[in-house]
């Protein structure tokens, strides 16, 4: 039996909106430590890893490790029926082929149950070891979304280069080229407005903008985004979920041959 009560139900709604276009079906894994998911897009170019720690739930009961296969489009349809202020409880019984989402209004005057069919999903699970990155850029998530959107109107790929000068986002397309350089800026009123560049070595990598733009659907989850780059690894684009965990997107680079 599992019962996970999330007072800030809007977080789960936002998580689904952030990942449902990238991944169709996924197994949600529930253990004593938390509620998590790892899934790749259909072309295996991108991967999403979600963690919602048990401590972030008001009530968290998970008697044994469980994996629940869900169609994220259908899950999103159900969660859209929850109000933004609603408390969401996820309930499941051992061996059941359904999961129940319960939505409670903050004043407890409206309570709704939505039962969704589970599915058997044969998904590959990748081992992602901790890694040292050549450069880590932390910046306002809205600024990153703006840059990805702007560059996608010019070209299909973005080159992200980190040097001691700053971080440069470049693209080229039929109509011309674009370069956007951000310098480290920590003299801001609010810490979430800062751009922080930690660089061990200069690095330059090329990525498909279509995926980057998909990742920015997580923008509402966090004021900041952390971009970790290494020449031998996929980029990691991480949105922290306040006090609870994170959504991390991994994207394999394009390589010149």
């Amino acid at each position: 039996m599992l019962e996970l009560r999330l007072v800030q139900g809007s977080l789960l709604k936002k998580v689904l909106e952030a990942i449902k276009d990238l991944v169709n079906d996924a197994n949600f894994d529930c253990s004593s430590s938390g509620f998590s998911l790892q899934a790749m897009d259909s072309s295996h170019v991108a991967l999403v890893a979600l963690l919602l720690r048990a401590e972030g739930f008001e009530h968290y009961r998970c008697d044994r490790n469980t994996s629940m296969g869900m169609n994220l489009g259908n899950m999103s349809k159900m969660l859209k029926c929850a109000g933004n202020d609603d408390i969401i409880t996820i309930k499941g019984d051992d061996g059941s082929d359904t999961v129940t989402f319960m939505f409670e209004s903050p004043t407890q005057d409206k309570i709704a149950d939505f039962e969704m069919k589970l599915m058997d999903i044969d998904s590959e699970h990748l081992g992602i070891p901790e890694a040292e990155y050549q450069a880590i850029v932390t910046m306002p998530s809205s600024e990153f979304a703006r840059i990805c959107k702007d560059l996608a109107s010019i070209g299909d790929t973005v080159v992200i280069s980190v040097t001691k000068e700053g971080v440069k986002f470049s693209t080229r397309g039929d109509i011309g080229t674009a370069n956007i350089v951000l310098r480290q800026n920590t003299t801001v009123d609010k810490p979430e407005d800062a751009t922080v560049i930690e660089m061990n070595e200069p690095v330059s990598l090329t990525f498909a903008l279509r995926y980057m733009n998909s990742f920015t659907k997580a923008t509402s989850l966090s004021n900041t985004v952390k971009i970790s780059l290494s020449s031998e690894l996929p980029v990691v684009v991480e949105y922290k979920i306040a006090e609870m965990g994170y959504v991390r997107f991994y994207l394999a680079p394009k390589i010149e041959e």
Binding site: M40, S43, H44, V45, A46, L47, E124, H125, L126, G127, I128, T157, T206, A208, E232, L233, P234, Y250, A252, P253, K254, I255, E256, E257
Partner: peptide, 14 residues
């Protein structure tokens, strides 16, 4: 030409 790498080029399945 530009080659799009996949997740399997970097990480092992388990």
């Amino acid at each position: 030409s530009v080659l799009q790498k996949s997740m399997f080029d970097f990480y092992q399945e388990y």
